[in-house]
């Protein structure tokens, strides 16, 4: 049972591990969501925002997780470019749609939160704008993976783009912050207070944990699919070569 990192990096070993671990991971995810939602139901109203603060328990974890997923993809991209490990690209490619889904969820709930709080569906608030840019970058990456047919070529191209994004994201964030303060000085109602009460912090942390467990579960399942897809592709090529 003792799995070293090298063994884990073998696709077949990884598939075995996923098959064994998946029931526990899925169970933990469901359990964490159950506990999180019960805690959210018991959480107090915000004195300023009323019950709309409940949206925060989805919005904020989705935002965290979409950024965390990008970080994970950046680590995978280094694995692809430096060690040329096939599993690294499988990891990055499987993570992209999940990260895009979290970013979408963050934008969607942010918009729903903005309507009662700010009075508009969309505010060019620095955070929302940065999240929109992240969402577009996810979509661009997925488009790149879908356009280049050869997996190893697509892997390298995507890895380069992910790392360029990692370098540029802080610059984009800074420029958007700067642009936003230039256009509308401090009129924006801040979504988060400077401090958060423990009675709201605990439900938020449990929900964040639940979303993280969901990410790991879905990511491993998607990685398994990707490995299978590559085997199908390789076998299909072999079959075509044999028929010739």
């Amino acid at each position: 049972m003792a799995l070293t990192l090298t063994e884990l990096a073998n696709p077949t070993r990884f598939m075995g591990l996923v098959t064994r671990a998946l029931p526990y991971l899925a169970g933990a995810t469901v359990l964490l969501f159950a506990v999180g939602l019960i805690l959210v139901a018991g959480a107090p109203e915000d004195y300023q925002q009323g019950m709309t603060v409940m949206i925060m328990y989805i919005h904020v974890p989705a935002a965290w997780l979409s950024m965390f997923t990008y970080g994970m993809m950046a680590a995978s991209a280094i694995g692809t470019l430096v060690w040329r490990h096939p599993l690294a690209d499988v990891s990055a490619k499987a993570a992209a749609p999940i990260g895009a889904a979290f970013a979408f969820l963050c934008l969607f709930t942010g918009s729903l939160w903005g309507k009662p709080m700010w009075g508009t569906w969309w505010e060019w608030d620095a955070r929302l704008t940065s999240m929109l840019v992240l969402f577009i970058m996810y979509l661009g990456l997925i488009a790149l993976w879908r356009t280049i047919e050869d997996p190893t070529r697509a892997a390298r191209a995507a890895a380069v783009l992910i790392l360029v994004g990692t370098v540029n994201l802080p610059i984009i964030k800074f420029s958007v912050d700067w642009w936003n303060t230039l256009h509308q000085p401090a009129s924006v109602f801040r979504m988060d207070g400077p401090t958060i009460d423990p009675s709201m912090l605990w439900p938020l942390l449990v929900m964040a944990l639940a979303f993280t467990a969901l990410l790991v579960t879905l990511h491993w399942m998607a990685m398994r699919n990707e490995i299978l897809r590559r085997r199908v592709r390789a076998l299909g090529l072999m079959a075509a070569g044999g028929a010739r």
């Binding site: 661009g140 488009a143 540029n168 420029s175």
Partner: peptide
């Protein structure tokens, strides 16, 4: 690849534009 290039690059061009 014609249409893909602007999609991939536009996010990085935002700071320049701003």
């Amino acid at each position: 690849g014609g249409l893909l290039v602007p999609i991939l690059i536009l996010p990085f061009a935002i700071p320049v534009l701003i």
